[in-house]
């Protein structure tokens, strides 16, 4: 398969990708020697990309030969986060809170235990706090310093969550970020932002959609989007449930 993405289209970039000039700027004593050697050796458009793929493979081989890693363990790690852990976990938590007020109370007072009771726990979800949207308050979660995110309930963070525009702007101008997600809140609502600076991970409990009284917990879970649990979105409309 040909690589469609040039380095400059690589959406993992934190900021607007820059020109080759800025990549040359990577030359510094803080990077391993490899980095600039490669930068100076290749000049065609895909050099950055091809270089990285080769170097990652080379390092994996080296670490395997050194006896530091077992490649099959890497496959299991990737499979876990590509296929097993994702926002459907969090959606089950939210739907249960919507239908069971005792569970909701538990979730708001001890989220780590309440979420673990549904078998979602572990790495990057060791210490959970759930924050509840109300008629007055809309919550949004960010990690301004890196990319902290509640993996057991939401899986890996989406690219935009790790990007400089999101990390920088949510704390100062959250409504403008919401607008880019196509979300407009009622004018009287205030936005509370949670910056994940420690090992505590935050999950938003959205407001239950209107006219959803007749829906089952499973049907409600289908309305809970990943973005609704980060606070950059709202749950789907209850009429969208396929009965």
């Amino acid at each position: 398969m040909t690589q469609q993405n040039t380095p400059d289209n690589d959406a993992t970039n934190l900021a607007d990708p820059n020109t080759d000039q800025s990549r040359q700027g990577s030359a510094s004593q803080q990077l391993p020697r490899e980095h600039h050697q490669h930068h100076h050796e290749h000049h065609h458009d895909h050099s950055h990309l091809d270089d990285t793929a080769l170097r990652v493979r080379s390092l994996e081989t080296l670490l395997t030969q050194k006896g530091y890693i077992e490649p099959e363990a890497l496959n299991v790690l990737i499979d876990t986060y590509e296929n097993k852990v994702g926002p459907r976990n969090g959606a089950k938590v939210i739907a249960k809170a919507w239908t069971n007020d005792r569970y909701r109370q538990w979730l708001l007072s001890d989220a780590t235990a309440a979420i673990a009771s549904l078998d979602f726990s572990g790495r990057q979800g060791e210490h959970m706090v759930v924050v509840e949207n109300t008629a007055q308050v809309h919550n949004m979660v960010v990690c301004t310093l890196c990319s902290c995110y509640p993996w057991p309930v939401l899986g890996l963070p989406p690219t935009w969550y790790k990007s400089a525009p999101y990390r920088s702007r949510v704390v100062i101008d959250p409504a403008s970020v919401l607008a880019e997600f196509g979300v407009t809140l009622e004018p009287h609502k205030k936005i509370t932002v949670w910056d994940s600076t420690a090992e505590v991970r935050y999950l938003v409990l959205p407001e239950r959609p209107a006219n959803s009284e007749h829906l089952t917990e499973e049907q409600l879970a289908a309305l809970v989007t990943r973005d609704a649990m980060i606070g950059t979105g709202l749950p789907l409309d209850s009429s969208l449930v396929s009965l």
Partner: peptide
Amino acid sequence: DMGGMECFGELELSDTDVHFHHDWEKR
């Protein structure tokens, strides 16, 4: 330490469900 900076422009929201753009990123 980016909180409050306003120089990075708009969010890139074209493929919001993609976690990896290249296989090497998974590795």
